[in-house]
Write a protein that binds this DNA or RNA. Structure first.
Lengths: 340, 340
DNA sequence: TTGAAAGCGCTAACAT
DNA sequence: ATGTTAGCGCTTTCAA
């Protein structure tokens, strides 16, 4: 099968089409943007001429007169963090469907780089998806005056934002553990300043109280496999029979640390991660809380395009629910018999 | 510390600066693009006015008169494939340094989507990085006439391309295995049409012959954890004592399958992956061939920007070497004693 | 060294 | 329903 598909066209302009079709440039322009204003036959002729020539609209030029660029940007702190690619992928995919192209900005976790990306991009995009922005609140609000933005996992009053709510999944996790006989579990907490971590602490505290399990939290600092592994000592000493980690990477570290010490999972210790970024790629396959970062991306792009296209109001908060994904790192509490 | 940093500016134009600085628009324009043509004092005054106002050049407008957009695009088949994020990250980072913004296109592995992304973007970028393009050769060559492009892991004569050469790493792998006493190893091959797989088969055949080890290859089809796990039966039956997998994901599947059957790694079976996409995130940590996808990204951007900025000639082929990263899945061949 | 004017490709009043 | 004109923000001859 050869290429019926769109061929990367040379610089064909509206004028070229106009000449070929024997109409004025405005007619050509309208044939694309508001065909219903134009005689159907003319439209047909124009379109024919256009794809005969291999015309591709020059968005940059169009932007100059309309102020609309047909581009959006998605900014992430670190595209190499497995949480973000699914998000970016969804954003790009949906944007593409709607005819938008997408800029990617990677701030490398540093606020100033984020700021400069934003300012550089603000002149060629119609809107932003800001995923877990590191920027100061003031600067974000500043940008918001300029262009529609939707935040992901950052909760700023009055701005459009999609928030992944861990409480559903975490509650299921605690309840799951409880039903397996666990009565003391440790939470390996992430960075205090992180919105996600705060949410998780809160949700966990609440769930633990509800279910009657004792929850002790231990901070690992910057989440990483290493910090997870290093926390194993503390976990073991705590006397807990299960651990819930800030994210899957940390959980993976815990798994590794446990393996080294020959403590069996889930035989002796149960472990649960967060974010479901590793799929079944751990050994044993990790029970985790779905993060749905892809869903968050989709949920962000949709209202963004609405705001851009129709000037729709910002939605308030869009909440993405989570749930527990049970795989193989959770089992009956060690040293207990559970009735069946 | 408050925000000295670039603030996302409103739509300040050159005219605004001209007015404030009491000069003409052309002077302002020149003060940026060719300061040496202009009185130093004037330049200073203009720049002062500019960042007082928070000016940000409008690349779209500039593009209209210069034909240069200040943007590049990087196209990948699947951003969620862990091979690509480091590549994209490097591209974005280096481009940013050079003042370029970057579009991301995800073709979802389908050639036609790739084509439409390319045509959509060709009107607002100065060049392309095409990572592992799925597109037909003809269409790529077509695009190449239009805009500078550099290919990654696709070997088209006469085009700029950076190729990751697996032979170094693979040779080390075979030699490593040989020295551990292995004499028969199976290669779990990926898709036949994949350039990478072809390279790997060739390199492996050569290395095996050199070192005197018997190499049998078994195709797993679409590389995935599942296909890796499913291949374990064949591996075990082959009588080989080691396996080299097409990529880390497949290797991870093998590890999982082996664990299920209680065959010890590396005690009974050694396994080696390719690409180093999982870091130490397997259990046990996987011995693998470095992929350096980040390096490939960097190696691609640099000549691309050269070609764009200075009209430099396309470099021929840029080869990225690989090497073996020994972790914990390789050990002495089962059932043999090796002299020390 | 600086300014005036034209034009990049497109759209949007304003005619007709 | 279609054409004319002006102008988006910038760079770039061409003059001064």
């Amino acid at each position: 099968m050869k290429g019926e598909s769109a061929k990367p066209a040379a610089s064909v302009t509206i004028s070229d089409i106009a000449r070929l079709a024997g109409v004025s440039r405005s007619t050509v322009s309208r044939a694309f943007s508001r065909p219903e204003m134009i005689n159907a036959a003319t439209v047909a002729r124009v379109k024919a001429a256009a794809d005969h020539l291999g015309y591709v609209v020059n968005h940059a030029a169009r932007a100059l007169s309309t102020g609309k660029f047909g581009n959006i940007a998605v900014i992430v702190p670190d595209i190499a963090n497995p949480f973000f690619p699914p998000l970016v992928r969804q954003v790009q995919s949906l944007a593409d469907l709607a005819g938008y192209a997408v800029f990617l900005g990677d701030s490398d976790e540093i606020a100033d780089r984020e700021a400069s990306l934003l300012s550089r991009l603000s002149v060629q995009v119609d809107g932003f998806v800001l995923a877990a922005p590191r920027l100061a609140e003031g600067q974000i609000r500043e940008l918001d005056k300029l262009r529609p933005i939707v935040l992901v996992n950052r909760d700023l009053d009055g701005l459009a934002r999609v928030l992944i709510d861990p409480s559903g999944g975490l509650d299921e996790a605690v309840s799951h553990l409880h039903s397996l006989g666990h009565r003391k579990v440790v939470y390996l907490a992430g960075p205090r300043h992180s919105w996600s971590d705060q949410q998780r602490r809160k949700a966990l505290a609440h769930a633990a109280e509800q279910r009657g399990v004792e929850m002790v939290t231990h901070e690992v600092g910057r989440p990483s496999r290493t910090s997870g592994r290093d926390a194993v000592g503390a976990v073991l000493e705590s006397g807990a029979t299960a651990v819930i980690a800030f994210d899957d990477i940390v959980a993976q570290g815990v798994l590794a640390g446990l393996a080294v010490r020959n403590v069996e999972v889930p035989g002796t210790m149960s472990v649960i991660g967060c974010d479901d970024t590793l799929a079944a790629g751990t050994n044993p396959p990790l029970t985790t809380i779905s993060a749905a970062s892809g869903a968050a991306g989709a949920a962000a792009v949709e209202p963004l395009l609405e705001m851009i296209d129709t000037g729709a109001d910002k939605p308030d908060r869009i909440i993405i629910a989570t749930h527990l994904v049970v795989r193989e790192t959770t089992g009956a509490a060690a040293g207990r018999s559970i009735g069946r």
